[in-house]
Amino acid sequence: MATTMITTLDRSSRAAARGLSDISIRNLFIIPTVLFLIVFNIFPLIYSLGYSFTDFRASTNAPANFVGLQSYRDLLNDPYVWSNFAITAKYVIVSVVGQLLVGFGVAMLLNRDIPLKGLITTLLLLPMMLSMAVVGLFWKLLYDPSWGVINYALGLGNFEWLADPKMALYAVALTDIWMWSPFVMLLSLAGLSAVPKHLYEAAAIDRAGPFYTFFRITLPLVAPILMIAVIFRTMEAFKTFDLAYILTSQPTAELISIRLYKMAFQEWQTGRSCAMAYIVLIMVLAITNIYVKYLNKVKER
């Protein structure tokens, strides 16, 4: 790391002689952070890689036996685990598409002269800043079949949101849409305000209809920023734990993070859960890689 030498200073100058060299400063500033992250982020993962080849259970004192790739083989052949992945995929799609539609829709509505626009925008952004676990808990009261405000407002009677196996996952997604549509809205607003006004003027002169203007001017120009929003939200939705764990215990809403949590900290199948964590980790790294490549591409423009 210390091979490239760059300095704007004449090395014989007074300042250079007094202070630390640029290279030592660079190393002093960067190396502690990298070391910290290696010790607390990378080392634990190596540590758990070892356990993933064993039948270790953290709840007992029994020594761990080496079982090789057994856990990985079992997990990848377990239809239960696959159903957790399928549930997660369904959840990601429902909540991200929902956020995209609501968030972009609200941004389109907001993208005009509106009294108190700044205040309204900030108020709309509030949900995404709040704690998912704590606010999610309160949605339990809102969803309550007998005295929930949602059923009352929509006239749904005693409709079961969280206790119905078919509905639970959608109810969680709905809360997630409420929390994170503002994020898509925020990004969309930035995209919309960057569309040059003269394009709309030219379209108006050409008597282009609103649909043509939307699909040929607005959407293509906002698309890259919408893509960023989709990538961000997809990754976050894939990781979802808090909201679903707090709102419901329906097996039909058991996301992969929740399965992993139960395996590790309720069933205490430590070795197996380490293997499972690795399967999830590889998936996340693959998505992150695509995401960073895309981000860099957008940044270069």
Partner: peptide
């Protein structure tokens, strides 16, 4: 970018 539970198991 990792799900917290993935990191939490070895950290625990």
């Amino acid at each position: 970018m990792l799900p917290p539970v993935v990191v939490a198991i070895p950290m625990f």
